[in-house]
Nucleic acid binder design. Sequence first.
DNA 1: AAAATGATTGACTAATCAGTCGAATAAATG
DNA 2: CATTTATTCGACTGATTAGTCAATCATTTT
Lengths: 198, 198
Amino acid sequence: MRGILMEEARGTIDKRDRVLKTALRLFTSQGFHATPTSQIAREAGVATGTLFHYFKSKDELINALYLESRQAFVTSLVRGIKPEMSLKDRGRLYFMNSLHWGVEHRDMFLFYQQFANSPYIDARTRKRGVQEIGFLMEYIGDGQREGVFREMPADMALAVIESIKIGMIQYFMEHRERLNNRRYTEAAFSAIWNSITR
Amino acid sequence: MRGILMEEARGTIDKRDRVLKTALRLFTSQGFHATPTSQIAREAGVATGTLFHYFKSKDELINALYLESRQAFVTSLVRGIKPEMSLKDRGRLYFMNSLHWGVEHRDMFLFYQQFANSPYIDARTRKRGVQEIGFLMEYIGDGQREGVFREMPADMALAVIESIKIGMIQYFMEHRERLNNRRYTEAAFSAIWNSITR
DNA sequence: AAAATGATTGACTAATCAGTCGAATAAATG
DNA sequence: CATTTATTCGACTGATTAGTCAATCATTTT
């Protein structure tokens, strides 16, 4: 049975966690099929048997990573959002939250990018993963009702916003020093804002 | 020796070409490592030995695909571009060329997206693949000199343009019927244009 | 039509893969 | 302290992989 005392529990959780972290890093840098379970186990410092003790299969491992990454991302997305904020301020905060999270959780972000729509993630697991889209669809609906956004199908506006957001996360990953300079992050937000507003 | 008469030559070129086309389709839908050479050969209707007769290794095959896809894309990109065109007209045409090519050459586009920056493409092959960036960098330089573009680092502007372009190609792939409706394609171009202009 | 050359084949191999299993150890429980 | 239960190990297995090779077939040249 899983230990209750801190010291005892840590050893156990530690190994499961080290497997997850190592797999995340290797999957994003090498791809799923190019990463053997033997390498994950070796670099995590556990035996292959231990890996399969915590995850019944390699697929279960990647699905666990997907759930963990999505949870972490969606939680960070809504941080500080208040209903009384203006449309523009809400949009800016969504963007800044995504931007900082993406850059600071590089592996998780890249994993999400690469694998969220991959066949390795089973349909049932993915189905519950549209929370983020839900937030943003509502946001776009608000903007259209207020007449602030240009005429454009809502799903096209969503595609525009999301693609710039992803592009900017990748951009700031390669220019981390600019992430704490308002001139650059605000320029990036302006690109999004102007792309869909009148 | 490779035949000179049409009928004889066709048989030969046919098999090499069928291997390439089949590999392109399977790599984009299943991924590189998830696609065994045996499956490529089987679905192309050739023996595994034939595949390795034309491509020394699986890596050489993916690199050949990369070169072919890039060549096809860059060629289509500049179609109809004239130096005397206005900045906006040139931008629109670059976009429309990319959009139509991407949607109509789905496999090549997806391949380019998935594999252009993957470790399977060797450095030497990739190095000669910055032609497209060259065009667009010049374009952005022109826009900044004319004072049409908002203040923003050139590489950030490039990242914005490229990411929206990719997003829109994916969008129109799922809405092919809208590709021949100016209202939609022009709305997509406006998103790009407004994202970087004053 | 004989010789030479390249195209094509598929059985085969060595290496590697995901996943198993029985033994050993550590922790929790009565 | 004795017993049960959870954790960890790594050698092992059957399946699958990229790539080989000796043989055959088709075409061109002499």
